[in-house]
Amino acid sequence: MEYRRSHQPGGTYFFTVNLADRSRTLLTDHVDVLRAVTRRVKQAHPFDILAWVVLPEHLHAVWTLPEGDGDCATRWMLIKAGFSRRLPKDEWIRASRRRKGERGIWQRRFWEHLVVDEDDLQRHVDYVHINPVKHGHVSRASDWQYSSIHRYIRQGLMSEDWAAGMTDGFEAGERK
């Protein structure tokens, strides 16, 4: 089955990518592998990371693709495959995946949203940064080490106590 994907050359996208087994903590356990693979993919297939947060079992990202290039699917396929190849083969694999020679680490698909304007972009960047708080991992977004919020703080775009105590109004695409 072919899934419809937004294909906006030079577009900015918000993504959610999940592990197949949401009870595992592979992404934070192996965050250095994820970072190395992402760097390698970015070198071969450039894109700008505007925001990124890695949680134990899923991640969110906001990327801008180069002008004339709308292929986010290849980039995610390469990141997911590169990450998977570097992990021990200890996951449970469904028979349908086994028949296709696939690992059982990632959900096959990812969720994407084409960012439509500056306000939409800000809502999604905020959502990325507040996500560890929403999931109860930390009480302040800046306390989560696997987040681009630290770059925003260094650049003076956010404070260390940004959104402290707030989780309401930070649904993807919603900002109150």
Rank of each mutant, 00 (worst) to 15 (best):
K42C: 11
R39Y: 09
L19G: 03
H30L: 11
R35N: 10
R22N: 09
H30Q: 13
R24V: 06
V31C: 10
A36Y: 05
V31Q: 10
K42R: 15
T38V: 08
F14K: 01
T12W: 03
T12M: 02
V37I: 14
T28M: 04
N18K: 14
R24W: 02
Q43D: 15
V31R: 04
L27T: 08
A36S: 13
T25P: 05
V17C: 12
Q43E: 15
D29S: 14
L34F: 12
H30T: 09
K42D: 09
V17N: 04
V31G: 03
T16A: 12
T28E: 08
T38S: 07
L27M: 10
D21G: 10
L26T: 09
R22H: 10
S23I: 05
V41D: 02
R24Y: 04
F14Q: 00
R22I: 12
V17P: 00
F14I: 02
L27D: 05
R35D: 15
L26V: 10
T12R: 01
D29L: 06
R22F: 05
Y13D: 00
D29I: 11
Y13H: 04
T16D: 08
F15K: 08
V17Q: 08
T12Q: 02
F15A: 03
A36D: 13
H30K: 13
V31Y: 03
A20E: 14
V41R: 05
A36C: 07
A36V: 07
R39E: 12
D29Y: 02
Q43H: 10
L26M: 14
D29F: 01
D29T: 14
L34E: 05
N18M: 14
D21W: 03
L19Y: 00
A36P: 04
T16C: 13
V33R: 07
V31T: 13
V37T: 06
A20I: 07
A20Y: 07
V33H: 03
L19H: 02
A36I: 05
T28H: 02
F15M: 06
K42L: 07
R35F: 12
L34Y: 07
T38M: 05
L27W: 01
L34R: 05
L27N: 03
D32W: 06
S23G: 11
L19N: 03
R39T: 13
R35G: 05
A20W: 05
T16H: 10
S23K: 13
R24I: 06
Y13N: 00
R40H: 12
L26N: 09
H30V: 10
T38G: 01
V33L: 10
A36W: 04
K42P: 02
R35K: 13
K42F: 05
L26R: 09
T38A: 04
R24A: 14
F14R: 01
L19T: 11
V37N: 04
F14G: 00
F14H: 07
T16E: 07
R22K: 15
V33S: 03
R35L: 13
H30E: 14
T28Q: 06
V33N: 03
F15D: 01
L26H: 09
N18T: 15
T12N: 00
N18Y: 08
L26G: 06
T28N: 07
R40G: 08
R22A: 15
